[in-house]
Amino acid sequence: MATAVKDDTTRKAGKSRARTRLGGDSSIYVTIFVALIAVGLTLGPILFLGLGGFRTNGQIASDPTGLPDPWVWENYRNILTGSTFWEFTLNSAIISIATTAGVVLFGTMAAYPLARYSFRGREGVFLMFTAGLMFPLTVAIFPLFLLLQDLGLGGMWGLIIPQIAFALPVTVIIMRPFLAALPDELEEASFMDGLTRVGFFFRMVIPLARPGMVTVGVLAFLGSWNAYLLPLVMLTGRDAPTTLPLGVTQFQGQNAANFAGIMAYTFLAMIPALVFFLMMEKRIVDGLSGAVKG
């Protein structure tokens, strides 16, 4: 009896599975076909670029689509043994890390009272941060540039501080519900144990909010690493550091005839972001869809 029922259910399950695959086993080939095309269109151009860096300008001129023959390491070697590429990468890294640290620290700190204290003006402050989403850096770029000049904020700080400011809204918006969701009992128990609110923030909130902080941090890091307009405008004014995106365009401007060199440089400039992406892929996707849902 029991076996009969079991048989019946397995058969049903098997049948429904067969039905879900309706259009059935051949449709997986459609999926794989679409996947291959999408992957090809995505990776193809990047591979072309990377391979182009292994050719000479002569090779590219005589046969634009060919493979490296022979493989030339010179383009990559010149860039990697020169100092500018590393200098720009280091600049970008310092600026992005400092921006990320500032955004995560100040953003989480600001989100904490907005999530867990009741006070007059709380919603007003939150609303103001929310409205900040409508003020992109692009819109404010010239007044910002003049302000930074008036304040004498040049160099790295001239890039880090404004980037922190413009990344704060999304950080506060993501962190507030995250912190509000921490159970009240936890807070009560901590107060009972004699922890102050400040103590609660450092001992309990920061460790518990780490996933949220990583998410906003990753988004802030990417934004800063890829930033172009602010470094571009700052560079024209005072001796701001050259970041990697600016460095690539500079190299392109100065070596316009060196097709293979530009390809190599551009390809190398992609690698740090791609490595970061591979390490943080899940966080980035979660962060984006989280930001979307939140």
């Binding site: 990776l43 670029l49 980035i284």
Partner: peptide, 28 residues
């Protein structure tokens, strides 16, 4: 993973890549 990768590249490097590839003498 691969489909999402271009999103994390900066517009600058993505733009320069296509500038090279779509050059009148470029591979694409």
């Amino acid at each position: 993973l691969i489909i999402f990768a271009p999103y994390v590249l900066s517009e600058v490097v993505a733009g320069l890549m296509w500038l090279m590839l779509l050059d009148p003498r470029g591979p694409v």
